[in-house]
Amino acid sequence: MNAFRTTRWSLIAAARDSPSRAQAALDQLCQAYRPPVLAFIRHSGYGNDAEDLTQAFFLRFIERGWYAEADPQRGSFRALMLTALRRFLSDQYERAGALKRGGRTVESGSLLEVIASDGQSPEDAFMRAWMGTVLEHAMQRLEEEWSSAGKLDQFRQLAPLLLERAEGDELRAIAVANGLRTNTLAVQTHRMRQRLRQLVRLELLQTVGSPEALERELAELRGALDEMT
């Protein structure tokens, strides 16, 4: 576990072992993984209450100790979050049913309403947002590296090329703007793309327990993406 002292798992350990550090751990987890949690809740049919439920989920994740038996050697942080989310929404649904049985009115926005119009399941929405979050974190790290090298402006011009291939005219225009030959720019962009892949792997490594688990996680993410496309 030494290699994972600064990972998402270490935040969970901090909350588990030191109640005084639980809020700081919660804040970091909420900031890092709020988008996929919010996506899952919204696509589970919760409309106006989705934002509040997202915050409530993270609070309960820490306060109820759902992470207590979590072990990075037995699964990914993503799987842990998804299991906890299902449990949380199940509790919400049962609570809403109890209120209705008790003759009390439940606000229309707090129960299962209309599933989001894009037709994604909660799991698909969570997976897309999770992958987007991982990529965003990796891009932020790549930007920091280029900024430290005094090349922030160049990074901002080249960053769009990492995700979408540029046409010849566009590539030449960017090359001219940076005082580079088109071939040189293409090589540089290729190297940036390779570095981004490395940073994505490092980001995911924070959420699993071993290099072997990382490969399984990558395979599962690729498979899920193939099914959604």
Rank of each mutant, 00 (worst) to 15 (best):
residue 120 Q to L: 14
residue 33 Y to D: 10
residue 169 D to Q: 09
residue 131 M to L: 14
residue 31 Q to G: 15
residue 55 Q to R: 04
residue 51 E to Y: 04
residue 129 A to I: 06
residue 222 R to K: 10
residue 121 S to I: 04
residue 124 D to P: 01
residue 200 V to S: 00
residue 165 R to K: 13
residue 104 R to M: 07
residue 30 C to E: 15
residue 193 R to N: 05
residue 68 A to V: 10
residue 40 F to L: 01
residue 34 R to M: 13
residue 44 S to V: 07
residue 177 A to R: 05
residue 139 M to K: 07
residue 205 L to S: 14
residue 53 L to K: 00
residue 175 A to F: 07
residue 193 R to Y: 00
residue 72 P to R: 07
residue 226 D to A: 13
residue 164 E to T: 15
residue 59 L to D: 09
residue 192 M to D: 10
residue 143 E to M: 10
residue 80 L to F: 11
residue 18 S to G: 07
residue 45 G to P: 14
residue 202 L to V: 09
residue 207 T to C: 13
residue 15 A to P: 08
residue 11 L to Q: 11
residue 145 E to M: 10
residue 225 L to T: 14
residue 155 F to T: 02
residue 161 L to Q: 10
residue 16 R to I: 06
residue 218 L to C: 06
residue 103 G to E: 05
residue 150 G to T: 00
residue 8 R to E: 15
residue 164 E to R: 15
residue 105 T to I: 12
residue 227 E to Q: 08
residue 92 Q to I: 13
residue 3 A to P: 03
residue 127 M to N: 05
residue 115 I to W: 14
residue 91 D to Y: 07
residue 44 S to Q: 05
residue 176 V to I: 01
residue 24 A to M: 07
residue 43 H to G: 10
residue 161 L to V: 03
residue 90 S to C: 13
residue 194 Q to N: 08
residue 17 D to V: 06
residue 172 R to G: 04
residue 137 H to D: 01
residue 63 E to H: 15
residue 67 Y to P: 01
residue 75 G to H: 01
residue 111 L to C: 10
residue 122 P to T: 10
residue 213 A to V: 00
residue 43 H to C: 12
residue 127 M to E: 12
residue 130 W to R: 11
residue 76 S to H: 03
residue 153 D to K: 12
residue 67 Y to T: 04
residue 205 L to H: 11
residue 57 F to K: 01
residue 170 E to G: 11
residue 212 E to T: 14
residue 20 S to D: 06
residue 50 A to G: 09
residue 103 G to R: 03
residue 175 A to G: 05
residue 109 G to T: 10
residue 8 R to S: 15
residue 84 A to Q: 05
residue 97 G to I: 11
residue 27 D to S: 13
residue 164 E to I: 09
residue 118 D to Q: 03
residue 220 E to L: 11
residue 129 A to V: 13
residue 175 A to R: 01
residue 160 P to H: 12
residue 113 E to R: 08
residue 215 E to G: 12
residue 45 G to I: 08
residue 191 R to N: 13
residue 10 S to C: 05
residue 177 A to K: 02
residue 58 F to I: 00
residue 43 H to V: 10
residue 143 E to P: 01
residue 8 R to F: 04
residue 148 S to P: 02
